[in-house]
Design a protein around this nucleic acid. Structure first.
Length: 305
DNA sequence: AAGACGAAAGTGGTTGA
DNA sequence: TCAACAACTTTCGTCTT
């Protein structure tokens, strides 16, 4: 995915773009249009201002990353003392390559686990790409996966399963809303298996994953349904009151957030149907109705229509 | 005709004996 | 290991706009 750098909004021409790394989106400040929901930066982390710099810097290879099994060192080393054009290397270059090769050899502990890790990390990358996840989530997931490997917990589990669980856990830690279902689908496994693996990781890694903050759902829904900022803040208020009244504990956060969004959309006259919201929230209309009934009752919300 | 509403039965996961 | 349980879903009939 080598897209050129977008500097202006194609919709209104506004140059003030907001990079929302939390949601992994590129948003125009002028018209609010979400230009791209992929904020991956696949290029190197440096800029070259002239040819000489480019010449020097291209030799560093791809940026260092946790998502390649040996953190990106693998591709640049082979056993010929020749460059890409087949020419012999100069002595100083030769010395460099020797050093690199030494470390490269050392970093390859065992063939089997390394191959396994390499495959798994490419799997992680694929899944993250499908889900439009920002880079930091992918990196987090990679770190999680490495931890799993180090603790020798993969035995008896599919790579896909553990990869999906790692991604899901990373999403939760980075506060990026993706349902278990979405992650599982992207990894081509069932929701059930994804859940099993996730719980397994949760138990074995003893990582504290905070429960999902329902407020982050709201912004997701508002975005999806193209509602106004006013609606969003009202939904937030409703949600805040609901949390104070402990209406949120024990319930699926998505349902509550969806109901709050629904009510807000009614209050601001930006009516959306229950079905529309339900679809985006991955809950049914019935659940929204139940939460909606609860919220209007307990919070004494007047809906004059 | 579409959306909202609610009852009833079913599902998958958690909990506690 | 099993049954009870809560949350949520599916389905379907009825009412409202």
């Amino acid at each position: 995915m080598k897209s050129e750098k977008i500097t202006k909004c194609p919709e209104c021409g506004n140059a003030d773009l907001i990079r929302d790394y939390e949601a992994g989106e590129l948003v125009c400040e002028g018209c609010g249009m979400v230009i791209s929901s992929t904020l991956f930066d696949h290029g190197p982390e440096w800029r070259a201002f002239d040819e000489e710099q480019r010449e020097k810097r291209t030799r560093v290879g791809a940026p260092l990353t946790w998502t390649i099994h040996d953190k990106g060192l693998s591709t640049i080393i082979d056993w010929h003392d020749r460059d890409v054009y087949g020419r012999k290397l100069k002595p100083d270059q030769k010395a460099r390559v020797y050093r690199l090769r030494k470390w490269h050899r050392r970093s390859k502990v065992s063939g089997a686990t390394e191959r396994n890790l390499a495959f798994a990390l490419s799997e992680l990358t694929k899944v993250a790409y499908k889900l439009n996840l920002p880079k930091n989530v992918l990196e987090t997931a990679s770190v999680i996966y490495r931890k799993v490997v180090r603790k020798r917990l993969i035995r008896g589990r599919s790579i896909q399963g553990v990869a999906a669980a790692s991604i899901y856990m990373a999403c939760r830690q980075c506060n990026i809303i993706r349902t278990l279902e979405e992650v599982a689908a992207a990894a081509h496994i069932s929701k059930k298996e994804g859940g099993r693996n996730y719980r397994f990781l949760l138990r074995k890694l003893e990582t504290r994953v905070p429960p999902v903050d329902p407020t982050s759902y709201i912004s997701k829904f508002v975005n999806q349904l193209t509602l106004s900022g006013e609606t969003e803040s009202i939904a937030m208020q409703i949600l805040g009151q609901a949390m104070e009244l402990r209406l949120t504990s024990g319930r699926g956060p998505a349902g509550i957030a969806a109901a709050a969004t629904y009510i807000a959309s009614l209050l601001t006259d930006e009516r959306r149907t229950q079905g529309e919201i339900a679809k985006g929230a991955h809950v049914t209309e019935v659940t929204i109705r139940n939460r909606y009934k609860e919220l209007t009752q307990k919070l004494n919300i007047e809906l004059d229509m």
